[in-house]
Design a protein around this nucleic acid. Structure first.
Lengths: 201, 201
DNA sequence: CGTTTTATCTTGACAGTGTCAACATAGCCT
DNA sequence: AGGCTATGTTGACACTGTCAAGATAAAACG
């Protein structure tokens, strides 16, 4: 694609690396993602990436950051649909969340996996994108509490952690292939939604 | 410990490897767990482990199997306390589940992480121990439905997947350090329990 | 008992990996 | 024009999982 003249300086290696990494990620998974292969994909030597990313973790964080940015947009779009009832939006959000995870398992694994979060390894750039995304979960939760969909006697932050935890847990059970397969995704989502909104039937 | 005479044949290398691995696991994490180091710990050459485990994944599966076995016992013990009400046991189970994950993060990560489950990599030995453990979750769910703690209009399997998913998700958010820290574990557990048992107050 | 089979352990080797150090190039600024 | 700095290069190191081929000891068998 961007292969005009093979010059000493690549021109936009950083973007090329992220692009190559994203492609490889969705096809072969996060585990088979090596800096050396990415460098080769970009037509550059093994250690060139180190001039754009501190280490492998930093590259992965950059990819995940883009994922969070995308998901944040999707979440907002769903939440701000004025023509639908809060309950409709709530259900849609659940289905979309699980659907996103099921459709992009490797990206989800990267975004919410321990690889980039453990040992405080998360880049500041990553946190800057991810934290607002988490915060939005709390904002939505508070809204649904106000609308009477979720119990009002619970702290919004705790409730957000629990409801999000539920979605996260279901997503991971699906993705990791643990006692749940993708043939019953919709039923699981509905079951979760029903459970949250018990009082409202 | 088991270091009598340094003979050509170790004697019980398989157990020694699992023991060394379990120790290293809890201290340094699953990522820094190499067959070579384990072999060295056991005072044996690099490739000796291959006579007891097909590959690295098989060794990890063996460790996880022990974890499942232990957890299954704990779950049963909690569930079968005749002197406590179903509701008390339900709450205790939630707290114990999250507590186990928080106290043994590396073991939990191994047991429920993608490392040993992805690509159908799970050993039959592992499945033989893990599946009854999953099934027990369904059994308990059905019981709690009968006792009126959980909604009776839901399929037990789906409900088990959702409730377990919740615990799993909370555990992972905690372990991976994503927008939740260990200082509010109890509150999160209570919030989850309240949410599940809404109708019953 | 001696012999043979089998389980176990060894060294050697290979293809990978992330990452550092030292050096090369080229574009930019003064 | 000259130097600074961003970017790219090769070389090297320590580490990984895993296979192949040979060594040893214990167990099985005649």
């Amino acid at each position: 694609m961007t292969n005009a003249v093979q010059s000493y300086h690549h021109g936009d290696l950083r973007s090329a690396l992220i692009e190559a990494a994203t492609a490889r990620l969705s096809q072969h998974g996060v585990d088979s993602l090596s800096l050396r292969k990415l460098a080769e994909d970009a037509g550059v030597s093994r250690t060139a990436p180190y001039h754009h990313f501190k280490d492998k973790s930093a590259l992965l964080s950059a990819i995940a950051a883009k994922g969070f940015s995308d998901w944040h947009s999707t979440a907002k779009r769903i939440f701000e649909q004025e023509d639908k009832t809060p309950q409709e939006r709530f259900r849609e959000f659940i289905h979309e969340y699980i659907g996103y995870a099921a459709d992009n398992p490797e990206m989800y694994e990267l975004m919410f996996g321990r690889t980039i979060w453990q040992n405080q390894a998360a880049t500041n750039d990553l946190k800057d994108v991810a934290f607002p995304c988490f915060q939005f979960q709390v904002t939505m939760t508070r809204y649904w509490q106000d609308k009477g969909l979720l119990p009002n006697n619970q702290d919004a932050l705790r409730l957000a952690q629990v409801t999000w935890g539920t979605l996260h847990g279901i997503a991971r059970l699906l993705i990791d292939g643990i006692y749940a397969d993708s043939s019953h995704i919709e039923e699981m989502c509905d079951c979760a939604a029903d459970l949250f909104m018990q009082k409202q039937g």
